[in-house]
Structures are given as C-alpha cells and as structure tokens.
Design a protein around this nucleic acid. Structure first.
Lengths: 200, 200
DNA sequence: GTAGAATACGAGCAATTACTCGTGTTTGTC
DNA sequence: GACAAACACGAGTAATTGCTCGTATTCTAC
C-alpha cells in the first residue's frame, strides 16, 4: 500500500514528511472534498513540492488509504462505551458511544470527506476499508451485547441500519452551531435508542 | 436558469432534445456520479454533439438544476400518504410515505447522484434546491400533522432528522437485492415510527 | 419565397490535474 | 571521506474536460 513495493527504509525526516503530508491531506480533503482536493494543493499545504509527495505515496488514492489507516488507528484508541463497566441503561450505552464519535468527527474534518459519503467511487471503497471494518466490527460487538438474541442475519442488518443512521445525521450534527448540535445529538441518541428497543 | 437569459422560443424539436438530454444526464449521473459524468458523455448518450447540448443548457450545473426541477415536478405527482384518508396508525402513515419514496429512488437512478450525498459542492446546493424544498415542505406537513404539539424549532429539527434518517438508509435499500430490501424497508419504517413515537 | 431564428455539428481551445523525470542535496554506513 | 540510498525540487507532460466557435441545415412567420 505504501509508495514503494520493496519497502524503502524511511529516515526520521521521511517519517516526519509523511506526517506532514497526511495532515495536509486531511485538511485539504476536509476543505474541498476528496475529488476536488488536488495533489498539488496537498503538497503546497504540506510545504513540499509535488515531486516530494510522490516519494511517499504512489498516487492520490494511496494517500486516502494511508489516511484511512491512520484514522482507524486513532479510532481504535477511542473508547466507544462505558469502559468495561456494564452500562446501566440502553440510553447510557448509546450516549457513551455517540459522544466520542461526534467528537472524533468534529476533530477530524478530513474524516467526513472520506467516509461520510453515500456515493463513493469504487477505487475509494478499498482505500477506506480499514476504517469501515474497524467501526463495523465494534458496532457489531456493541449491538450483539445489547441484543444477544439476534441471529447473524438480523444482527448484521441491525448493525448496518445503526451505522447508516449515525452516518446520515452526522453531517447535520457537525455542521450545526453549538446549541443546536446538542439538540441534534439528543435526537440521534433518541432515534437509536427507540430503534434498538423496537427490534423484536 | 435556462440556457439563455432572454428566453429562446423552443420548437417542438428543441423540447424533444431537452428531454433526451435530461434523460441521458440522469442515466449518466446515475452511472458515474455528478462530477465524473462528462458533458461530452451526456451528449453522446443523448445522441447529439457537445455543441448541441450547449444550445439548451449554459453549463453542466444548469443541467443538474433542470434535472432537479424535473424531479421536483415528478415528486409533486407522487402521493406520500394515504391520499386524504386519515391513516389509521403511525405505522401506516410512515409506510404510505416510505414505499413511494423508495420506488421513486429505485426508478430514478440519477436522483441519488444529485441528492443522496452528504458532501455537496456549494455550486450544487443551489442546483438541487427545487427538490430539497419540495420534499422538505411535504415532510414538514406530514410531521406537523402527526405531532401537532411541536413548536417551530422542534418541528424543524424533527423534519431534518427524519429526512436524514431516510437519506442515510436509502442507498442501502436501493442497492440491496430484493429480499434484503424488503427487510431494510421494514427497518427504516420501524426506526422512523420508533423515533416519532419517542418525540416528547 | 425569404428572412431570421432555432437547431445542429464537431474540431479544437484553454484550463486543469495527476503524475514524472532529470537533477541536485542530505543522511546513514563503512 | 566515500558511497549509496533517501530526500527534495519544480518545470514539464499527457490526458482529461467543460465549453466555444465557425459553419451549415431546418423550421417558423410573413
């Protein structure tokens, strides 16, 4: 996935460049969206030349993939629950998952440009697989704990519905002013709780 | 909004061309998405030259806008309820709205390429305004009837949440195979019913 | 029938953009 | 210090694409 097929031995300087580039890419994707973000703009934002960018990433999609891996790592470090303690209610379980997800989305403007989109060119699907799988797996575990009686098919479908409900409302939440955002988060949590309770 | 500032008097031939172009645009948008669909490809699909296309639309965005207007018209003709008869239950009211919306999405593959996207370039927002306003207004009427006690702010928020829940699940529903689609539609309806019942 | 408007063509322009390549500099290793 | 590998540059290239323009044909109004 990296720039070279036979791994090049990165120097400290090179690793720092990769960080710069991924940061610049995240910002540029966040500002302009994936397709409108040009590789030259990313390089400029990172303070390097276009040629240097391609020393570390073999193409634009490779940048998206690396960024996706980085987001997946960061997400792995985010607790989406009550941290081992059994949640008292469904409400508190949902709340404990939604709050950090919203924070993550707010803190990473490039995230939504890559993942919070319904239309995605086939080439991008593969690039963003790391994050999707990370989240999907964790949501499945959470839903299975809440609704242990579901069979595989029903569980899978419920997970998909939950993820799409969250994804559908997230742009609204992130874009809203502070006061309205709190209200929207309550709506999202309420819709999830109500939905999960309604599962037979 | 049309190609010319001082309206040109369309002949029957011209109106037929506009129909061809909008049909070709809808198909091309549906296949490739808005940005990847080239005007030359639309012209080719419509069986005309690029030059002819620009006799009727001043640019690509103008095509999207005209298509949006057409979708808005078609949607106006779609009954999103029980047709004057008071619905017996919340379930039946939701069902009566969701079924035709899903059908419309399935029948118009270009629709999702324009509207069912979370990231939308600013230039496109204006182009798709006709459809958004049409749907928004009708959903507001429906929600206000179901939840007459909501004040303006709560009503508006509830409408937004409902629309984004539908929009979030629609790609899943449209893409699913027949058997799974029926199950997903049930999930969407159940989540909407549960959410609306949970509104204080 | 004729003038003018509408329709039609398609080669090609101007701008954009992902990416390359020749060249030069810095770093790690011995 | 010498050598190779990593890093860096940025002008340039090939391809794409939205759109134009000169020209030719068809329709409508009178």
């Amino acid at each position: 996935m990296s720039a070279d097929s036979q791994e090049t031995k990165r120097q400290a300087r090179g690793r720092a460049r990769i960080d710069q580039i991924l940061l610049a890419a995240a910002e540029t994707f966040g500002d302009l969206g994936y397709e409108s973000a040009t590789t030259n703009a990313i390089a400029a934002r990172a303070g390097i030349s276009p040629g240097s960018l391609y020393q570390f990433f073999k193409n634009k999609e490779d940048i998206a993939h690396a960024l996706s891996e980085r987001y997946a790592e960061q997400l792995s470090g985010v607790e989406l629950g009550t941290g081992g303690v059994e949640p008292a209610t469904l409400e508190s379980a949902v709340h404990a998952a939604i709050v950090p997800i919203v924070e993550f989305n707010r803190a990473n403007p490039g995230y939504k440009a890559l993942f919070a989109r319904t239309d995605m060119p086939a080439s991008m699907r593969e690039a963003v697989a790391p994050v999707r799988e990370n989240l999907h797996g964790r949501v499945r575990v959470g839903v299975a704990r809440l609704l242990p009686h579901l069979d595989d098919g029903d569980l899978e479908r419920t997970v998909l519905v939950v993820m799409h409900m969250v994804q559908g409302l997230m742009p609204l939440i992130v874009a809203a002013p502070d006061a309205e955002r709190a209200a929207l988060i309550r709506e999202l949590e309420r819709s999830l709780v109500a939905y999960l309770r309604s599962v037979p």
